[in-house]
Design a protein around this nucleic acid. Structure first.
Length: 650
DNA sequence: GTTTCGGTTCTTTTT
DNA sequence: GAACCGAAAC
């Protein structure tokens, strides 16, 4: 407990408004903060942390759960700067991050070794596919691995039987539940054997750990005197129970969120978690943040009108503080290409008017909506960054390099073994399977005899390269210098491989070099690997943006734009079928409401300028055109709230 | 028998 | 891009 004597106390009153101040300095106990968009939610959380620490709480006894690791880092950095003595030792990160940290310690209680590996989406899918294949259940009408995986994931995240998931979400697919259950069992066994957990396992196993081990849950209950949860509206039942169990002892639980911004129900999130909080926590105090500092009144008016279409939620109103400016624009365009040209010109115009590119974002429902624009921007020499669909750490070159590290870490990591070996010419699926079996389903890269065995199974041309790679892990040397390994790997093999395989090899080489740099920041390679698996592309983009030499426009899905803001926001494809997405409407009875919340999130990212693009037709691949109705969300806005104009019609 | 390559098709949202 | 499929090449 650091002494604050002699250091000036923070002047909360001068730095927060009344709403924020009340929440940040609220007395202990369960607290619900309903924070509408742009009302200083992060600021309030940061000051809450500062308040707790200043009042004498040891930072190690505070747990801050956020939606991305980046959000946690930013909040901690701000709190650190605020509090004399800092907040070092505070636990901050995503649910998965916390679960991983706890499981590394107690994995043995749930039947795993503490050096388990973490499967990313791609790994899980591969594994599920293998299981289905091995069981020979794979007929033409059997669900694809990706569908199976999403079924398993849904069941895990809402803690419900598979049968129920299939009935509610996939009633249109005629499938045999028992057969799918068999595949799931096989998948579970397979993971067990590999010593691997997927993303869902981290949460599920951590919860199981708490449920079954009073000593463990008791320990963490005791440790966390204060728990803060950001974006609480996007927690799923598993996450909510994790929090409940951690808070059961001290009951100092502060949750922040906005039911209007709940956009992850497809991942099991249930905004009723936040709605029912006062009932579940007797004596909970509720604080509302409704004063918006972000957007001009015209944008807020539009946002309020948009969300009014969802009558069944806590009605909150965004109260403006900024001066009147001008109305958001609705732009009718002929087609996607016209939209791309228009948006490019618009960006250039906004820049001429003094808005830096880094203060402009283009938002859309799905990644492919931005394809036309991605072709158009470079021609006009407009620099942009896109947080693309595949996660940074799921790109082939990143995974290739990590597979070598994984292999040095674990003798049972078949996926890593397979990935690494298949980089060699002449090695494919079959060869790898044979090798793995020959090795006895385990591979020790430091064992000379096992390395020889692999050599023999390779084409002569590949042997040299393999031996050079394997030589990076000398026998007997147990501790792994990740940076050295990566640099060596690139030197003896991977550089040539990249040049041969990819046109953009130089960029990929840079990524790999950066990765080698990153490893040095971690205490152990193991820690590095599990962090890599849990980082989001938003996390990665944040890191990249700081080193970005040139400022650039941001292209992003609405989901990834959550929590961010820009001076100017341009929304693409506001048409029926695109936004709202027809598939989302079809898949879920609550689809309409969730898509509307998503549109609301998009609108409320804008500070000054907002443009909504409504193309008239979609050009299909076969050369045909599809007429698009304007989005219901645009139609719902009273026409005098926006300025509509048409572009590109004859 | 395997691997590789070239062409085609499609793209919800993500820890 | 990347996932999938079929055909060519080893």
């Amino acid at each position: 407990m650091s002494s604050t004597i002699g250091t000036p106390e923070l002047n909360f009153e001068a730095l927060l408004n009344a709403e924020q101040l009340a929440a940040a300095t609220a007395p202990d106990g369960p607290i619900l903060v309903l924070a509408a968009a742009g009302t200083g939610k992060t600021r309030t959380l940061v000051f809450r942390v500062a308040h707790l620490v200043q009042r004498g709480t040891d930072p190690e006894r505070i747990l801050l759960l956020t939606f991305t690791n980046k959000a946690a880092r930013e909040m901690l950095a701000r709190a650190h700067a605020l509090v004399p003595g800092g907040v070092s030792g505070l636990w901050g990160g995503t649910f998965h991050h916390m679960a991983n940290r706890i499981l590394r310690r107690y994995a043995n209680r749930v039947g795993f070794d503490s050096d388990y590996t973490i499967l990313d989406r791609d790994d899980s899918k591969t594994l599920v596919g293998q299981c289905a294949k091995d069981l020979k259940v794979k007929r033409d009408d059997f669900p694809a691995p990706a569908v199976l995986m999403s079924l398993f994931s849904a069941a895990a995240n809402i803690d419900a039987p598979l049968e129920q998931i299939i009935q509610t979400r996939y009633s249109d697919i005629v499938i045999d539940v028992d057969e799918i259950e068999i595949v799931r069992k096989a998948y579970e066994q397979r993971k067990q054997k590999l010593g691997a957990m997927d993303f869902d396992d981290l949460l599920v196993k951590c919860l199981a750990l708490f449920r079954q081990n009073d000593d463990v849950s008791g320990r963490y209950c005791e440790q966390f005197a204060h728990i803060l949860v950001d974006e609480y509206q996007d927690t799923n039942p598993i996450q909510a129970e994790l929090v409940d169990r951690l808070a059961v002892r001290h009951r100092n639980l502060l949750v922040v969120g906005d039911d209007f911004q709940s956009i992850y129900s497809w991942r099991g999130a249930d905004y009723r978690n936040i709605m029912s909080f006062p009932q579940r926590y007797e004596g909970a105090q509720t604080y509302m943040l409704e004063t918006n500092y972000r957007s001009v009144p015209e944008i807020l008016e539009m946002a309020n009108a948009c969300i009014a279409g969802n009558p069944e939620q806590f009605q909150k109103v965004l109260r403006p503080t900024r001066e009147a400016y001008h109305k958001p624009g609705v732009v009718r365009l002929r087609d996607g290409e016209e939209q791309a040209r228009y948006v490019t010109d618009l960006i250039l115009r906004l820049r001429r008017e003094g808005i830096p590119l880094s203060e402009i974002a283009v938002l859309y429902r799905a990644h492919f909506h931005a394809l036309d624009l991605e072709r158009c921007l470079p021609r006009a020499h407009v620099p942009y960054v896109i947080v693309s669909g595949i996660r940074f750490f799921e790109q082939a070159h990143i995974k290739d390099v990590c597979s070598l590290l994984r292999l040095m870490q674990s003798k049972t990591d078949e996926l890593a073994f397979s990935r690494l070996l298949r980089l060699l010419p002449g090695v494919g699926e079959r060869t790898v399977a044979k090798l793995w079996q020959m090795l006895g389903n385990t591979f020790d890269i430091r064992s000379a005899s096992q390395r020889k065995l692999v050599s023999k199974g390779l084409r002569p041309a590949s042997r040299d390269r393999w031996e050079q790679i394997a030589a990076l892990a000398p026998p007997g040397k147990e501790d792994v210098d990740g940076e050295e390994i990566i640099r060596g790997f690139v030197e003896v093999f991977y550089k040539d491989h990249l040049i041969k395989s990819y046109e953009n090899f130089d960029r990929r080489l840079e990524d790999v070099a950066a990765l080698a740099e990153d490893v040095t920041k971690f205490e152990s390679v193991e820690g590095f690997l599990s962090d890599v698996a849990l980082l989001t592309n938003v996390d990665a983009a944040g890191d990249g943006a700081e080193t970005e030499p040139e400022e650039s426009v941001r292209l992003s899905t609405v989901h990834q734009a959550k929590g961010l803001e820009w001076s100017a926001v341009i929304i693409l494809w506001a048409t029926e079928g695109m936004f709202p997405s027809s598939r989302a409407l079809q898949d879920s009875p609550d689809g309409d409401a969730e898509e509307r919340r998503l549109f609301y999130v998009a609108i409320t990212r804008a500070k000054d300028e907002l443009f909504v693009c409504v193309p008239e037709v979609r050009r299909m691949r076969d050369g045909g055109v599809m007429y698009c109705e304007p989005s219901r969300f645009v139609d719902e806005i009273p026409s005098n709230y926006v300025k509509t104009h048409s572009v590109g019609f004859i």
